[in-house]
Design a protein around this nucleic acid. Structure first.
Lengths: 235, 235
DNA sequence: AGAAGGACCAGTGGTCCGTA
DNA sequence: AGAAGGACCAGTGGTCCGTA
């Protein structure tokens, strides 16, 4: 028996969405393949720091990628886990796929994407990089952003969170604050910060990060107003 | 009795679309207002070259804008017609609406459009500029582009087409060729041409114009290859 | 016939939530 | 519990075609 979830969310900082239809239609409910209960990939043991350790056995259901763990720079994740160097490597791969898509589009006189779009994710899947998917890449964009913008800070954060034994979710949350600080030094304009970095400019600014920068600016402006000297608004 | 049209089109230079449902549902078929057969706006006679001469009477059905006619620069269109200065003025208005939307978005920490998007058209309607709509603006973008990029050529074309008594559709078609020539001087990169002009950069490159530039490049490359010296491909 | 624009549709950005 | 990602939805870009 499954409960019907209500499905609230905040679309892009504006008012909430209108009524949604009931979701999750449970496709693919009947298994036609020979999967029994559980199975694991047969081979094993690739272990470059930027190599996945996920499944990929011949035939059968596609395995999920192994979950990420907080690793130090250069550290190889242990069995059934992927490290953060590998995570960041996925962003580099997406960039290369974007470059491919752009080249093909221009060759054929079609409009060329400037960002990693659905089209790019579709291309990645088509050429076999099925371990790349949109929800995952969007989920960790800001972590990659910190890695791009301040690798030392990013590395330090990884070491600290690994030392404390924090899980990936906690590390991911912790990546926001240093980014807001960086944005603050650029007038809280996180779009400008992304746009100014060539490897970052191809990624959409995550909604949550944008919200946090906006909140920080409001707090900053309020504090300045309280201090007496009201600065002119940024826009 | 109305025939069911088949509804073919070329999506963005790629393969044709998949099957479409039957279109046109004929909403708003019953009139609840007091319109009889025909009606015209009561007042009259505004006649600045960038002022519309379309309806806007109090209450009742919204009048369509008057059709465009080919006018010389500075020329005022006669009754029930709008001139080309007015057309180009609409593009300037859209730019101002975009600037408004951008300012509001940034104030609220939301993502800010870089182009004239649906959001901008919605804003234009909301603030009363209901004479601005997406199909119209997209239809004439390349005409506005020529006006921006080579006003002398644009003016000359207008005078020539007016002198010949051509209709707006013919003039509109004629705007493509000079633009392709301009693109040719920039490596056939029409996107770069648009992007380099501040008032043009906010408009999407029309599909048809992009196709024509692509075709021209192909023809150009083929001619060069035939001449013996094969140049390197642009991308 | 020529033209303006309401309304449609395929595919997008964004992310929820059923799943492992 | 923590996490990966299939699948969904609101709103987009693009323009057709019923309308005046």
């Amino acid at each position: 028996m499954r409960m019907m979830a209500s499905g609230k969310k905040q679309k892009n900082g504006s008012a909430g969405r209108k009524a949604k239809k009931a979701r999750r239609k449970k496709v693919n409910d009947l298994r036609l393949d020979m999967q029994g209960d559980e199975h694991e990939e047969g081979g094993g043991g690739r272990s470059e720091s930027t190599e996945s350790s996920a499944g990929g056995g011949v035939g059968g259901e596609r395995q999920r990628e192994h979950p990420f763990v907080v690793t130090e720079p250069g550290e190889v994740a242990r069995a059934k886990k992927n490290g953060l160097d590998y995570l960041f490597h996925l962003y580099e791969q997406c960039r290369l796929f974007l470059l491919q898509v752009q080249s093909m589009a221009k060759l054929h006189g079609q409009k060329s994407p400037t960002k990693v779009t659905n089209q790019v994710f579709r291309y990645a899947s088509k050429v076999g990089a099925s371990y790349i998917n949109k929800p995952k890449m969007r989920h960790y964009v800001h972590c990659y952003a910190l890695h791009c913008l301040d690798e030392d800070a990013s590395d330090a954060l990884r070491r600290a969170y690994k030392a404390r034994g924090e899980n990936v979710g906690a590390w991911r949350q912790a990546c926001y604050a240093p980014l807001v600080d960086i944005a603050a030094r650029h007038g809280f304009d996180i779009d400008a910060v992304f746009a100014a970095h060539p490897r970052l400019a191809i990624w959409y600014v995550p909604t949550r990060l944008r919200q946090l920068c906006h909140q920080a600016r409001s707090a900053h402006d309020a504090a300045a107003a309280h201090a007496g000297a009201m600065p002119p608004p940024m826009f």
